[in-house]
Design a protein around this nucleic acid. Structure first.
Length: 299
DNA sequence: AAACTCCACAACCGCACGTTT
DNA sequence: GAAACGTGCGGTTGTGGAGTT
């Protein structure tokens, strides 16, 4: 059984948006806020598909968007995040206020790829272009990215977790991979997360850090390295669970949310995983401390 | 100046996934 | 539990402008 189309294609405009359409959309969202994209076009008097409206707003009309060229620092952040996360443009965009996933994706494909190649770096693997993959895998197989062997050695960093995740993605369907992850993690406990501002033994780290705290962290690490600040925390994706006062779906709140490892694992398991590891018996549990029924915690 | 090529980016499409009914 | 719905994501395409011949 197929699903109904998101809009009636025969009566919708396509292609570039006109100024008038933009104004209608802006005016409508200014009054009614974001959301209900399916019904928005009709309510706003637009002959557009809801998805098209959403895209137009998120990628172009949102008032908090930063226009203009990417800075060197932004370039480096994108490269670092891509090496950790792969083509997770929305996650990368989450760490670059004012930038959209679409914008970063385009920028990656048109500029950064070339930049890396000119540096002799493979944009996909982030390894030297002439280097052959030498490590082996026990998890999978056909991906071009470097494979690590996690059978006896747990992942020690977000980079390795990212690789593990891609391995799982390619080998397991989403319903099976959670079981795989659980059994894998039952054999070890990660020692440290090198690029994450993870506070061990304290699941309250799941709480969202403030912008001020994040700014301080950024400043304190600025001279050492780019602080990716991949906070291990609650991903406030469920309605009503956000700690923010603004609408959980609003662009503002989205930009305030730190990237979390919950999101890193979000596509692997049927239930996203929150990596709040604590001392004591190591096991997966529902994340009570994070006050979310949607995430598993590593304890 | 016209024709052509290349590039950047806005927009579209299909799919996945969480939520609701 | 299944179907329908709503939304978001990543890959791809279309198009306009800049540069070149």
């Amino acid at each position: 059984m197929g699903r109904s189309p998101c809009c009636e294609k025969a009566h919708t405009n396509k292609g570039a948006w006109t100024k008038e359409e933009d104004e209608r959309l802006i005016d409508y969202i200014r009054v009614h806020g974001e959301g209900c994209w399916r019904s928005l076009p009709k309510a706003a008097g637009l002959l557009r598909c809801g998805k098209s409206c959403r895209l137009r707003w998120i990628n172009y009309l949102r008032p908090d968007l930063k226009r203009g060229n990417f800075t060197e620092e932004e370039d480096e952040i994108i490269i670092k995040l891509h090496s950790l996360l792969g083509n997770k443009w929305s996650l990368i965009a989450g760490k670059l206020p004012g930038r959209t996933d679409n914008e970063i994706k385009n920028y990656w494909n048109t500029h950064i790829k070339r930049k890396l190649i000119s540096r002799g770096i493979d944009p996909q693997t982030h390894r030297p272009l002439n280097e052959k993959t030498t490590t082996t895998t026990t998890a999978t197989s056909t991906t071009k990215t470097t494979q690590l062997n996690f059978k006896n050695t747990p992942p020690q960093s977000l980079a390795e977790i990212s690789i593990l995740k891609s391995q799982l993605d390619s080998k397991y369907n989403s319903t099976k991979s959670n079981d795989f992850l659980s059994s894998l993690y039952s054999s070890f406990k990660p020692k440290k997360i090198e690029t994450a501002s993870l506070e061990e033994n304290n699941c309250t780290s799941c709480s969202t850090t403030t912008d001020e705290e994040q700014q301080q962290k950024r400043e304190s690490h600025h001279d050492q390295d780019i602080n990716l600040d991949l906070t291990i925390g609650l991903a406030p994706t469920t309605k009503g669970e956000s700690t923010h006062t603004s609408s959980p779906n609003s662009a503002e709140s989205r930009l305030e949310q730190p990237v979390s490892s919950c999101q890193l694992f979000g596509s692997v398991s049927t239930r996203p995983v929150c990596l709040c590891w604590q001392s004591g018996a190591a096991r997966w549990e529902s994340c009570r401390d994070c006050q979310s029924r949607r995430y598993y915690c590593w304890k």
